[in-house]
Each structure stands twice: as structure tokens, then as C-alpha cells.
């Protein structure tokens, strides 16, 4: 008797159509139904930021939304940054060069937080970068290299 609803969602420019139970979390939809496992799930209650994706262009926690709520909306996940593994997005390249990750668990959420932030704030100070990523927990890096990577990304954008 459980309710099943049809949804159409755009993820990284591709249309996905599925039938889902209303209680399916958006992050579980993205990972398990759409098969895009780049988005990570850590805490499932909105605290860690690992599941951050873009919802109509804005970063949100996909673990505290339902898949049915994405019906008719546009999502972007970390897979949308590049479709060529040999040619990283400049933001990813900066993380690579500045060692902005160790285990990488937090990285997709941080990239999806920084992507729109750096577009709107092309020359942030170190304090502003730290503020921008304050909703993303990293257990490995101590954040310094993440901040360095974000700075490098802004420099790359300005030099090209």
C-alpha cells in the first residue's frame, strides 16, 4: 500500500525518470537509483556536508531532502564538473595540485559548496573561504590545504 510517485529530475544536464517511495532521501536516490556515487553520505542529519549538491544552482544537503522534492528540478553533482577524467575542472585541478584532500570523503561536498561560492565571490580572503566551507567537515586535512586549494582555484581563474 505504500505510495509510489513518478519523478523526472535533471542531473548534470541528463534527464532521469523513476518511480520512488516518498521517504527515499535525495542522496540515496542520487547514489543508488541514478547510480551517481560521487556524492557521499556521512551523517544523514545535515551536519557534515558530505552530501552537498547543487539544487537549482544552490548548494543544499541532499540527505535532508526527499527525492520526490526534486521532481522537475535541476541538480548538479560532483560528476557534473567534468566528463573527462583526464581533464579535471579547474577547481578539481587546484585540489589536486594543492593536496586539498586526503581520503577524499568530504571532497565532493566541498567542491559543490565552493563552485557557486567562488563564482559569486571571485576574490575571497582566507577568512571568507573558511567561512564558506564551515558547513563541511573534514576529518583528514585540518582544512589548511583545502583553503590553499580554494585560493589556488581563484588564482587559476584570474590568470586565464
Amino acid at each position: 500500500m505504500s505510495q509510489i510517485l513518478p519523478i523526472t529530475v535533471s542531473i548534470n544536464g541528463n534527464q532521469y525518470q523513476h518511480e520512488v517511495e516518498p521517504r527515499l532521501l535525495l542522496v540515496d536516490y542520487v547514489r543508488q537509483v541514478a547510480g551517481l556515487t560521487g556524492t557521499h553520505v556521512g551523517c544523514e542529519h545535515g551536519v557534515c556536508g558530505a552530501c552537498t549538491i547543487l539544487f537549482d544552482g544552490k548548494p543544499v544537503r541532499s540527505c535532508i531532502m526527499f527525492a520526490v522534492q526534486a521532481d522537475g528540478h535541476e541538480l548538479m553533482t560532483v560528476e557534473g564538473l567534468t566528463d573527462d577524467e583526464k581533464k579535471l575542472h579547474p577547481l578539481q585541478q587546484a585540489f589536486w595540485e594543492a593536496h586539498g584532500l586526503q581520503c577524499g570523503f568530504c571532497t565532493p561536498g566541498i567542491l559543490m559548496t565552493l563552485l557557486p561560492y567562488l563564482k559569486e565571490n571571485p576574490k575571497p580572503s582566507e577568512a571568507e573561504i573558511r567561512d564558506a566551507i564551515s558547513g563541511n567537515l573534514c576529518r583528514c586535512t585540518g582544512y589548511q590545504h583545502i583553503v590553499d586549494a580554494a585560493r589556488l582555484a581563484t588564482e587559476k581563474t584570474h590568470s586565464t
Binding site: G46, G49, F55, K58, P59, R61, M65, T113, A132, G135
Partner: peptide, 8 residues
């Protein structure tokens, strides 16, 4: 909270 939470 955080910006991602205030977006929603």
C-alpha cells in the same frame, strides 16, 4: 546553521 541549510 550553515549556508547550505539556509538555502533550504
Amino acid at each position: 546553521a550553515h549556508s547550505q541549510i539556509r538555502n533550504r
